[in-house]
Simulated scan of single mutants.
Amino acid sequence: MEYAQRKEYEINPQTMALIAKYDDCGQVITQVVERGNRFEITKCPSQVVDDSCRYFASSLEGRILGTKQVTSYTHKPPIVISEAMGIYFFPIISPKRKECSWVAHKYIRSYQGESDHTTTIQFSNGVNLNLPVSVGMFANQVQRTAHFRVILEDRLNDRPGVQETSSERIAETFS
Score class of each variant (00 low, 15 high):
5 Q>H: 12
6 R>Q: 10
7 K>Y: 14
8 E>W: 14
10 E>A: 09
16 M>G: 03
16 M>N: 07
21 K>Y: 09
22 Y>A: 12
25 C>H: 12
25 C>M: 13
25 C>W: 14
26 G>D: 08
27 Q>C: 05
32 V>R: 00
35 R>M: 14
39 F>W: 01
39 F>C: 05
42 T>V: 03
42 T>P: 05
43 K>D: 06
45 P>H: 13
46 S>M: 04
48 V>M: 09
48 V>F: 10
49 V>K: 09
50 D>S: 05
51 D>T: 10
55 Y>D: 05
57 A>P: 00
63 R>Y: 10
66 G>W: 09
67 T>A: 13
69 Q>M: 14
73 Y>D: 04
74 T>G: 15
76 K>P: 00
77 P>I: 03
77 P>C: 02
87 I>K: 07
93 I>Y: 05
96 K>N: 11
103 V>N: 00
104 A>T: 12
108 I>V: 15
108 I>N: 04
112 Q>K: 07
116 D>M: 03
118 T>A: 05
118 T>C: 08
120 T>Q: 00
124 S>R: 13
125 N>M: 01
128 N>D: 02
130 N>H: 07
130 N>Y: 01
130 N>T: 12
133 V>F: 01
134 S>F: 04
142 V>P: 02
143 Q>T: 06
144 R>T: 07
146 A>T: 05
151 I>R: 12
151 I>N: 03
153 E>L: 09
162 V>M: 08
165 T>A: 09
166 S>L: 07
168 E>C: 10
172 E>T: 15
175 S>Q: 13
